[in-house]
Every structure is written in structure tokens, then in C-alpha cells.
Write a protein that binds this DNA or RNA. Structure first.
Lengths: 268, 268
DNA sequence: GATAGATGTCCAGTATATTGGACAAAAGGG
DNA sequence: CCCTTTTGTCCAATATACTGGACATCTATC
């Protein structure tokens, strides 16, 4: 046939057309997929999930496993993240003092209060749990580490947006984000008001937003400029007495402030 | 590291300096380089270090930062590992019960004894610290997390090789590995004997091997089949009294055994 | 402020990485 | 047992990712 002009006027309706793609892009999608799935995946399934040629995926996976970025695990040829990924993740930790200290603080708070405690950040426009420590009776928690959740669904989300002008927040929030799965939808104005309230208050408590049987108690962590860069939060059962909630909030605010100190020079 | 010497006269048909290379391979080298260096690196320096074309590296780094696998940091355009790398590393942790429990145990041992404590594994034929918690007076420790060190230089290395036949160990140890930097060289036979002794003993103590002023106390962690898969170790000052060393070793052996239990089913 | 060097972006051309398909071997399934 | 599906490996062909070089901006050094 003649040369098929690549969509002269309109983009291909289906991107499933045999598109030759960069190996690196496929790898990035592959890693994201593994993260989403959260468990080892067979190479064949990977190819299917990414709609990439099998031979390509085999080749890429070989390179990645040779580099220990992936590991083959299980009796079948399933692959998952490897040791190098772990080490590189630790490098990130080492470069980010706040993360390391916050992780330790979360573990301490969880140990001392017995409550499920989280350290949360804004990542790619979503609320994301960066570390979590389960309380004494670990109940079903709705957010896994590293999985983005719409900001309006959480108390921390209100704090994380404290420094953004309303216009930016509007742009950041997709329509569906205003309707938590197990709770009533809110308007963008209501949410903006909630952000403003959290900003004013210096903490935030929500009830039954993601999970109808829990409260969420959050406190900000600020950088040197005073901007909220992360949060700490407790997830407690709905029947927790108000005075305990207040006490937990005070602990959290105090911890948040101690983590907000200007990063000490750790080099010698 | 200039691991790609100009190679005055290479056998033909090999890369002649300007070798067009796969993007993914460059990325893998890039990540390894960042890990070696251990701090943010400017893109130009990356290109130089990898001896890769600048335009290529810019393009790759752009893809990686867009994916949050790298992050731009600092006033100049330096890049280092990004949040996604951290999350993927956490995924590795979640998939490896042993790592998570060992990390907690290391933190506990360090807190309770005040000694520098490490969790070590065999990675790519080297002894590698997978987690470390500094003691009360954190002194200069010679091994960073994730950095491979020749097996003969450490007490843990002797334990990690306990299940390998002598022939394999010989093949695994490079000649230079038998000469610790601050200590006298050993013969391969001496090392094999030390491995055998560690195997017999169920623990291992070395003195002044990497650092002349420290002892290294190590205990094995075993899998269901009883093979050594990892170790715990204390790094203590050379003047530590023998009875304390014995007591620390006993603690370590006990902790190692508790971690050696068959992995509990954590699924519900 | 002139020189020298780095940085980030852009572009056309080509070496080659990606691709589809073919294949044997293993793994079910009925 | 045969039939179907999946797996892992290999290969030739070509779409394109990588490359080299050119360029305009910045930073430093003297």
C-alpha cells in the first residue's frame, strides 16, 4: 500500500493501533502498573495489561531484572520490584530528612497511642500516604501507601491545599473528586471553605468521608517558609470520645510542629 | 567511576567509543550512578559520567522526572531519586515480610543496646547493608545502605556464604576482595576456613577488618529450608569488653532466630 | 567586559531497538 | 489422549529513538 499518513487531520480514534514506542516509556508504564496491582505479575499479563508486544516486554523485563530493578518471584515467572528499587527508595529517604523523621514519628505515635497513624504528602495532584503504621487493632484502612486519592476525600487533603489560591485548587480538583465513594458529594465552594477553615484552624478533622465508620484527624507539617508540605494523621473509629479526639489532635499538632523545624544541617 | 576507559585498542566489532545505546540501558546506568554518588547530580555531569550524549540524557531525565522516578532538586538543575522510586521501594518492602520485620528488629536492637545495628543481605555477589540504625554515639561507619562490599571484609559475609560450596565461593571472590583496605590480606583458604567456622558456630565475630577500631558481630537469618538468607550485625568499638560482646552476640543470635521463622501468612 | 565554558533546546539523519510473527515446549482442560 | 492456550526464545524488517552538532542563554573567571 501507499504510505499511510499518520492521521493527517484527526488523531487516531484508537490508540491501540500498533504504535512503536520507546522502551523507557514502556518501562515507566510497567512500573506504574506493578505499583497499581501491588503484587507480582507474570510477564505475559504485563504485556497484555500494557498492550505491548510480548517480545518487547520480555526484553525489557530481562534488562530490568538483570539490573535488580525487578525480581522474578514465585514458582511461575512472576516479576515484582527488586532490591535495587528498594535501595534507590532508601536513597530518596536519605536525601529527604523530613521523610525519615516523619516515618519515625509516625511509628512512635502509633506505638504510643495505639491508633493507625499516617504521614501524607501531595503527589501528582493527589493525596498520598507516604508512610503508615497500624494501630493495635488494625482495621481496614482505605488508603495504601503510595496510592493517590482525591484531595477532597481526606482531612489531610484540606491541609495540603492550605497554601494554594482558590483558582489553583479549582483547577486541580476533577469533578468526580468531590464525591467521596461512601459519602455525600460536596460542592467546590464547600470544599474551598473547608480548606480555608483548615488553614485557619491549623488542623482538620473529618468524619466518615472515605469510610463511614472512621474519623480522620490531621495536622500540618510546614517548611521553613511556613508552607504546608505534608501532614500527619490519625484514623480512628467513629465512636472515639470527643475528648480523646481533641487530645489526639493536640498530639498530632505538636508532632507536626516538631517536624516543621528548619531542617538541621546533618552534614558534619 | 571511569569504568569505560577509552580503550586504546579494543578488539573490533565492539563499541568504539561512540556507541548508540538503548535508552533503557542508559537509564539503568544513570540510576546506578546516582546511587553510587549518593547525592543530586546535574544533568550535564550525568552525561559526562555516563559518557552519553547530552541531548540523550536530557531527554531521558525529562521522561524520568515526569514519572517522578527522579526529582529536580536544589537551585541548579540537579536531579536525584524521586517519590515514585520511594513508593516502589516501599512496594518491595511490603512484598518481603522479612525485610520489614528485620528493619523493625534492627531499630529495636539499636534503641535498646545503643549500638550501631545492621541488617545485611547478599546482593549481586557482594555484602550489602539493607538497613542500618545508628547507636547512641554514631561513629563513622564504613558501609552505606545499598553499597556492595566484598564479602571477605565483613563478619556477615562469612555467614552469608555458609551454604555455598567452596568452589562457588572461590569463583565468587575476586582476588582484590581478599585484601581489606585497612587490614592484612588473607588467602582464599583462610577465608574458606573462616566461612566454615562461621557455619559451625552459627555466628561470627571479626575484629578490625574494614575499620581497625571496630569489632563486627553477626548472626544469621535463615529461610524455611534453613539456608542463610540475611544477617543481623552490631558494629562496636574495639574496646568493648568481651563479656558485653558475648552478650550482644547472644541477643543477635536470638533475634536472628526469631526472624528465621517461616513467614507467617499475612493475608487475611 | 571580554573570554571561556557550561546549560538547555531543537533538528535532521541513520544505526538500531522495537516489532510481529513463527516456533517449540510446556501447561492445562475436557 | 488430543486440542487449545500460554510461555519463552529467536529473527528479519522497518519505524524511530538516539545521536551529533548548531544555537542562544546563562555563569563564571580574569
Amino acid at each position: 500500500m501507499d504510505q499511510t499518513p499518520p492521521s493527517s487531520d484527526r488523531p487516531a480514534a484508537q490508540q491501540t493501533g500498533s504504535s512503536r514506542e520507546r522502551g523507557l516509556d514502556r518501562v515507566i508504564a510497567l512500573l506504574a502498573h506493578l505499583h497499581r496491582v501491588g503484587r507480582p505479575v507474570r510477564v505475559g499479563d504485563l504485556a497484555r495489561a500494557l498492550s505491548a508486544p510480548r517480545s518487547t516486554v520480555y526484553s525489557l523485563v530481562k534488562s530490568l531484572t538483570d539490573a535488580s530493578l525487578l525480581e522474578t518471584v514465585g514458582p511461575n515467572g512472576e516479576v515484582f520490584f527488586g532490591k535495587s528499587m528498594y535501595f534507590y527508595g532508601m536513597d530518596y529517604l536519605r536525601a529527604h530528612d523530613l521523610f525519615e523523621r516523619a516515618r519515625a514519628e509516625v511509628d512512635r505515635l502509633a506505638r504510643e497511642t495505639g491508633e493507625t497513624t499516617q504521614f501524607c504528602v501531595l503527589h501528582e495532584g493527589k493525596y498520598t500516604v507516604a508512610h503508615m503504621s497500624s494501630g493495635q487493632r488494625p482495621f481496614r484502612v482505605s488508603s495504601e501507601v503510595g496510592v493517590g486519592i482525591p484531595l477532597p476525600w481526606t482531612a489531610s487533603g484540606r491541609l495540603l491545599l492550605a497554601d494554594f489560591p482558590d483558582a489553583e485548587i479549582r483547577a486541580m480538583i476533577a469533578p468526580g473528586d468531590l464525591h467521596p465513594p461512601r459519602s455525600a458529594a460536596m460542592t467546590i465552594e464547600e470544599f474551598l471553605a473547608a480548606v480555608a477553615a483548615a488553614r485557619q484552624e491549623g488542623s482538620c478533622i473529618t468524619s466518615g468521608l472515605i469510610d463511614p465508620y472512621t474519623h480522620c484527624i490531621a495536622a500540618p507539617i510546614r517548611d521553613q517558609a511556613g508552607r504546608v508540605t505534608a501532614t500527619l494523621c490519625f484514623v480512628v473509629l467513629v465512636n472515639t470520645p470527643p475528648e480523646r479526639i481533641a487530645s489526639l489532635r493536640d498530639m498530632l499538632v505538636a508532632s507536626g510542629q516538631s517536624l516543621s523545624l528548619a531542617p538541621v544541617a546533618k552534614r558534619e
